[in-house]
């Protein structure tokens, strides 16, 4: 394998790892935020309302950030 080839392969590896880390960070952040919003006293399982709240919370958080992003872009 040529040096340039193996270099770009390694860079691809790093990019993939970075992407994985970004997804992990998003999951971690969303879980924290939605936990605070949705979960009361920890029981033997998440009840239906809590589970639905968490799923909606994650979706609406992402909607909110893209809304904010678009609005900021328009202002520029």
């Amino acid at each position: 394998m040529s040096e340039a080839n193996s270099n770009s392969e390694f860079q691809t590896f790093i990019e993939q790892e970075n992407q994985k880390a970004a997804i992990q960070a998003a999951i971690s952040k969303l879980t924290e935020t939605c936990w605070d919003k949705c979960v009361g006293k920890p029981g033997s399982k998440l009840d239906r309302a809590e589970s639905e709240c968490i799923a909606n919370c994650a979706e609406r958080f992402l909607d909110s950030s893209s809304f904010i992003m678009q609005r900021l872009m328009k202002k520029q």
Partner: peptide, 18 residues
């Protein structure tokens, strides 16, 4: 102990949603 298990459940829901 319950809280930890529920936190992991919550994380699972977030991952699935994403």
């Amino acid at each position: 102990a319950k809280c930890m298990d529920r936190y992991l459940d919550a994380m699972g829901i977030v991952s699935k949603t994403l």
